[in-house]
Nucleic acid binder design. Sequence first.
DNA 1: CATAAAATCAACAAAAAGCAACACTAAGTG
DNA 2: CACTTAGTGTTGCTTTTTGTTGATTTTATG
Lengths: 252, 252
Amino acid sequence: MTKYDQEILNAVALRGTLSVSELSDMLGVSDQTIRRIVKPLVDAGKVDKIHGAIQSVSNPMTAPFQVRFQHNRAAKAKIASRIFDLIPDGASVAIDAGSSSGYVAQALQMRRQLTVVTNSAFVASTLSMIEGNRVYFAGTLLRAYDGASYDRSAFDTVERLQVDFCVLTAAHVHPDRGFLVAEQCEADMAQAMGTIAHQVIFAVDHSKLGGTETTGLLSIGRFKRQPWMVVDQAFPEDSGQIRDLAKVIHAD
Amino acid sequence: MTKYDQEILNAVALRGTLSVSELSDMLGVSDQTIRRIVKPLVDAGKVDKIHGAIQSVSNPMTAPFQVRFQHNRAAKAKIASRIFDLIPDGASVAIDAGSSSGYVAQALQMRRQLTVVTNSAFVASTLSMIEGNRVYFAGTLLRAYDGASYDRSAFDTVERLQVDFCVLTAAHVHPDRGFLVAEQCEADMAQAMGTIAHQVIFAVDHSKLGGTETTGLLSIGRFKRQPWMVVDQAFPEDSGQIRDLAKVIHAD
DNA sequence: CATAAAATCAACAAAAAGCAACACTAAGTG
DNA sequence: CACTTAGTGTTGCTTTTTGTTGATTTTATG
């Protein structure tokens, strides 16, 4: 038992996976020391070790949502990390139920004293257990597609609050039509969250920027201030028109 | 018992970890004296000693949720699997926010067409993304201790429903006092969930059955029907009295 | 499959913490 | 006053912990 054991156990349980160097930064010790400390914990079966990182011991069941969640992982993680930089400790944030928002929630686990309102059970679960956070879950009946609520009480809860930032996702970004989503209720929720926020931040990976086949998708209305759009890589030509939609921030 | 004992105990309880030199500065004595004073406290199990510092003895009851969740993993998984057997496809279930309930939720991911009501964001997140489930989240403001809600709207949502089963946890099971929890709101929620359920199921691992130091814990009232109690291993003598509390089901 | 990059491991040296022994003080006791 | 006893500081030595270095293994990439 070293003085770091408890902290490592907590951090790993919280984050799921932590690289050796993240851990060494966090505790202010060398990588080698982390390996020495972790060894007994691995032997005792309290954590799992893989090349380069420590994991909380694997729970066999946690797949269904993971599938969509894993898609484009690297890009989403990069975007989330950039959004993390934009949101300071103590901020208030509305977060929607997109899969990119799940990554943002995970990144924000390192922030403190956040006030969060979300209609996503995953985001709520991710951020509510951080000591010092204040998390409001908006809604009652959850739909299976994204584990989120779009019922009357969800809108009631959101509309009662004011926040500094609002993190939104979109199914597609179209140069003319703007930010698009698949269903009316999602558009309404995006609009509701955008309205209570001082600054809207869209998390958009490059797969949302390509083609122009946007049939069936609905446009989210405009916001009072120009939103920010955090993207994982430069996108092609339409840049001019997109720049009218939002201030583009690169995650690289 | 020296004149410094109480002060050291208080300081350690407050700060969690204190180095030997911090302590010696604080009390104006040498490091060696601190070691001499602390030795009996360590032997008595009142504090933990690590190289260079004193720590408050780790308490699973106050640890962060993710840590409690990992504690006694095997037992909780076994219990959850047994409860899975008791709850059929298509059933309606109320689930509380205990760490054992988290395992039950994971096990129930293999069930279909469940109707679930819970005040735990983790449980809601776990079960809401299963296609065919109908999940109600009860509450709005979440507390960090367990990522669960105990506000007015939580009770409103629960009390509006009727369910077949109700899965509850307890901090301790006492032969005379029954099922005990740490806070009034938890007792109230357990009572509310138990009241709307046809059958109450307690998930109890053996660590909840031991000693009788139950100071500060509150009793959950009785239920109209005798609850079931799923345990991971046989427990000692008091069996007679416990059998009055609940029908005992072994997970082995 | 070859190469480069990243992570691991073993070994050593330096720093930090622990420990045993001894000396000193202060209070109580005959 | 001599003696005991409990509590404390000091000293020197031992043990534990940690960072560094360089060789080795694993993983990623063309």
